[in-house]
Structures are given as C-alpha cells and as structure tokens.
Design a protein around this nucleic acid. Structure first.
Length: 402
DNA sequence: CATTGCGCACATA
DNA sequence: TATGTGCGCAATG
C-alpha cells in the first residue's frame, strides 16, 4: 500500500510480461517485481489487490487460468475492437481513431471489459465512468472466474483432468460445501487424486501457489452460456442454507454477494472492509476487543483454546466452533491461524479481511490461491483447519436447519 | 540458472 | 474473420 511506485511497478510488470507473451499471472508478476525492485511477493500481491480494486489492474480468467491485465491497455484495445466491430461500417477511423482512442478511452471507456470480462457477463454495465460500475464489472470478471472456480472446487481434487461430464456436474455443485462436494468428486472421478490439488502440473502449480489452480476449461463455455449472475446464483441456490443464512443473518449481503464466492468475496470484502480496518486497529487489539466483548475471561493458556474458546474459553467443541465462527472477527481468524502454527499465513487472512463468515465461505481455491500463500501451508490450512471448521459449522447448522 | 523473445495455436468478439 | 492471448521452446545473459 502506500507506495505509489507499486502501481507503476506492477503495471509495468504486467506490460512486460504481456509483451513477452508470457501470462501475467500472480507468480510471474511477483517474481518480476521482486527481481526488479526487490519487494516482497506478499507485498506485491497486496498491492496488486489494491490495484485491482482501483481498476488499474484487471483480474481476468483467460483460457482457464487467472491472468492480470493493465486496465489502461485493455481499455484501449477493447475500445478499438469495439469500434472496429461496432462501427465496422465507418472503416475510415481506424488509424486516426487509435490515437484519439487513448484519450477517448479515458473518459468514455467502459473501463475495461476485455474479452474476458465480457465473457464474465457481457459487460452489462455500460455506464461509463461510474466507480460502482467499475466495481460491478470487476465483480463480473471475477465472477467469471468463480464460475470456473465453482467447478474447480470440484475439479480441484481432480485437477487437470478436464472431464466434461465431471466438470459439468462440478459446475452445478455448490462450491460452498467443499468437503462433501470435494469428497464426492474425489471419490468418483479419479481416485488417484486423493492427494493434493496440485497433481495437475506439479511444478507450475506449486510454483504458482498464488495463482494457478484455476483450470477449468468449461469456464468459458459456461460464461458464455449463462450470465454470471445466473451462474452465481446457482451456487447460491444450492448452497447450504446454513451458510447462507449465516451470511444473511448479520450482514445482509447485496444481491450479488451471494453470488460471490471465492474471489469476489475476497475482493469484495477487501474492498468494503479495507477502509474500515485498513488503517485502523491492530488485529491484536481487535482480538482483545473481541474477547472483551465476549467478555469471557480465558483461563486457558493456549491460544488454541482461544478460538474454540473464544466464547467458552474452553475446549473447542464442534458446537462452539460452529457458532463462534460466525462471530469471529478478522483478528480472531488471525489469532486462530497464528495459534495453530501459521503465523505468517495468518497475516494473509488479515490482509484479505477474512473473518469468521468469510472463512465459512472459503473454498479450497480461495485458500490456495486467494491468499497468496505458499501452496504447502495453504493445503494444510485448508485441509486441516478451514475445512474442519467449516465442517463443524455446517454440521452444526444442518442439524438446525433440517 | 533465470530471463527474454517469439512462432503458432487457441480463445473470443 | 480479426485480434488478443499465452504455451512451449529456443536464445540469451
């Protein structure tokens, strides 16, 4: 944050990668920024996130993987094609337009609805420079990804295999019930995958811990077939009532939010929360606050007790977790992961403003890629903690709801 | 070894 | 079809 240079660096990096015909993915961007400017990948990721929120950078899903675009350039090209397509008749303008374009793009642009964006949701918000519009667009972008992620959820366990049928079923599957879904999927399609998600392209994936796993070819199809909203809604519809209600209960989400899954959630949350907390309190303080609010003096020494025991100050029963989870603040989440041995990764949760509710909504892909943490810890975190917490929560609630 | 350049196939409009 | 994108590989430092 802060460093305005970052913007430049990152945009520059994206441009470089693009001109090199290399996919500007998180991994490459981070690496290049690091190499060129010596900044930490983590930091780069954060800045990237910010740029995405600033619409300076577009996060898109292209050919089944995440990629980043320099919004400015995208706009330009987009504009061009728009003109070309739209005003095919007036063929004249081409050369002159290109020059005028750039300027025109700045105000008239639809900020950036690159192909990918469109595919996300035919850029339904043609409104010009409305920030909110931008927001939407961006969401749709990510939504596009989500669609792939949904299934990725499923296919994640069966990584690179792009079994159309599996994919299809995966699509409809709600991303929200990772465990079940994942297990089901895992069980049926390919047993070999039992292991981790990264089988697909071990090297790459591993390297790209921050980025890669989204590989789902049908994404594109689906996007095309149904507007993101639909896509998004589907999962919502299928999604466990527990979760939804959980969400709805407190922070009544905006229409789209349900649709939000991994990425959207992230960027969304981050977007909205960032400001509140951005400057604000140290997570530790927050944690304290929380405790004091809950006002249960913990006699436990262990931090672990803290989470489950946030309220109870005791053992951490599934029950408690299930309930508490909804009330966990970002700080709680952070301290939880810190306490279970992932202090470094815990920071990522903080950065991404993951509170209890968000945690519940997290999918494997979010943990693996959305937090920009190393694949190893990410896997552990997901498998041993996120998943477990979610499971206990949902078990708890499924009882309630059914 | 990492980085860069680029042909060519693919995706999208 | 036109155009953007990025994989995969060779060249380079």
């Amino acid at each position: 944050m802060s460093e305005p240079r970052y913007r430049e660096w990152i945009l520059d990096t994206i441009d470089s990668l693009r001109s090199r015909k290399a996919r500007p993915d998180l991994e490459r961007i981070c690496r290049m920024v690091r190499r060129r400017h010596g900044s930490e990948p983590d930091q780069t990721c954060l800045e990237l996130e910010r740029l995405i929120q600033d619409h300076a950078v577009l996060k898109v899903n292209y050919k089944g993987s995440v990629s980043y675009r320099n919004a400015a350039k995208v706009q330009r090209s987009r504009r061009r094609s728009e003109q070309a397509a739209g005003k095919k008749s007036s063929s004249s303008s081409s050369s002159s337009s290109s020059s005028s374009c750039s300027s025109a793009a700045s105000n008239n642009n639809k900020r950036a609805s690159p192909a990918e964006l469109n595919n996300g949701d035919s850029a339904q918000g043609p409104a010009d420079d409305d920030p909110m519009e931008d927001m939407e667009d961006e969401l749709s972008t990510t939504a596009g990804m989500d669609s792939s992620m949904d299934e990725e959820e499923a296919s994640l366990d069966a990584p690179c295999m792009q079994i159309p049928s599996a994919a299809d079923s995966g699509i409809s599957l709600s991303p929200v019930i990772p465990d079940v879904e994942a297990e089901v999927t895992r069980a049926s399609p390919m047993p070999s995958k039992s292991g981790s998600s990264c089988q697909s392209t071990p090297e790459k994936e591993r390297g790209a811990a921050g980025v890669s796993p989204e590989r789902t070819q049908p994404a594109a199809q689906r996007d095309t077939v149904s507007p993101v909203l639909d896509m998004a809604l589907q999962p919502a519809a299928v999604c466990p009532s527990a979760q939804r209600s959980a969400l709805t209960r407190e922070e009544e989400p905006r229409a789209g939010e349900n649709a939000l899954t991994p990425d959207q959630l992230l960027s969304n949350c981050t977007a909205s929360l960032q400001q509140d907390e951005a400057v604000g309190s140290d997570h530790l303080e927050e944690g304290k606050k929380c405790n004091s609010v809950d006002d249960i003096p913990l006699t436990q020494g262990t931090e672990t007790a803290k989470n489950g025991g946030m309220k109870r100050g005791g053992l951490f029963k599934a029950d408690d977790v299930a309930q508490d989870l909804l009330q966990w603040s970002v700080a709680d989440v952070v301290s939880y992961f810190t306490s279970v041995g992932f202090p470094e990764q815990a920071m990522a949760f903080r950065m991404q403003e993951i509170d209890g509710k968000s945690l519940l909504l997290m999918q494997r892909s979010d943990v693996l890629t959305g937090l920009s943490i190393r694949l190893g810890p990410a896997l552990k975190i997901y498998e041993h903690h996120v998943k477990v917490l979610q499971r206990s929560h949902f078990q708890e609630h499924s009882g309630v709801f059914s």
